[in-house]
């Protein structure tokens, strides 16, 4: 038995499944961009909050000195 006949005998091939799975691709990509987008926004927010807080703390330290 050569390799091609071995492949052909054991593998199923249903091209229609590609089309059927496209919905998962759409859903998956949508969810990943929503989650990552949310993380981007939250990261920007914590960056701002903690940068302000650390600047204030530094200013207070300078005053007391």
């Amino acid at each position: 038995m050569n390799l091609i006949s071995l492949l052909a005998s054991n593998l199923k091939f249903e091209p229609i499944k590609f089309v059927e799975s496209l919905k998962y691709m759409g859903q998956g990509l949508l969810v990943i961009f929503i989650v990552i987008g949310l993380i981007v926004l939250l990261t920007m927010a914590i960056n701002k909050i903690f940068t302000k807080t650390s600047k204030k703390a530094k200013a207070n330290e300078d005053k007391t000195e």
């Binding site: 593998l11 091939f13 249903e14 499944k17 590609f18 059927e20 799975s21 496209l22 998962y24 998956g28």
Partner: peptide, 8 residues
């Protein structure tokens, strides 16, 4: 790849 693999 999910779409590709689901054919097989």
């Amino acid at each position: 790849t999910l779409c590709m693999a689901s054919m097989f």
